[in-house]
Design a protein around this nucleic acid. Structure first.
Lengths: 65, 65
DNA sequence: TCCATATGACAAGCCTGCTTGACATCGCTC
DNA sequence: GAGCGATGTCAAGCAGGCTTGTCATATGGA
């Protein structure tokens, strides 16, 4: 799953650890999402999108399979 | 996680099995989501929302915690 | 050079999304 | 009453999200 997390995080001048703390997950989870090693849960995707004031679909580009 | 799936499915006159087939999961998965036994993955949430022409946030009401 | 911060990644373990297969119940129609 | 579609739920099993802990590497500043 492709996402805008890395870009948004950079725009907001946050480290992976900062963002992780802000949305309540571990640093490794943010890293794994940014590097595409796994997809976030719906709950985490919603928290991340909300944090950046965006819709989930604007932040995560789900395959239209 | 609270959702509009049951209402939307009824509006579209679909059985759980119909909707399951349309989005490519098992009937039990749709049932479990409707009865709140578990939350869908981001991918499935996106497929369901897209099927009904809605944003994910309009269909799934994620706790704001 | 040394230290701190940031990032990438791995392993083990837990929890849960999702599967197939099965069974029960309900409401409807024959 | 028998059969059928729809729904609810359970069990076992697999896959993957997420955790903590750890290590390696790069970069920048004192």
């Amino acid at each position: 799953m492709d996402s805008e997390i890395r870009r948004l995080r950079a725009e907001h001048d946050l480290s992976q650890a900062d963002l992780a703390r802000l949305v309540g997950v571990s640093r490794q989870t943010i890293n794994a999402i940014e590097t595409g090693r796994y997809d976030p849960s719906l709950t985490l995707a919603a928290r991340l999108a909300r944090h950046f004031g965006k819709a989930i679909e604007e932040v995560f580009h789900v395959q239209d399979s």
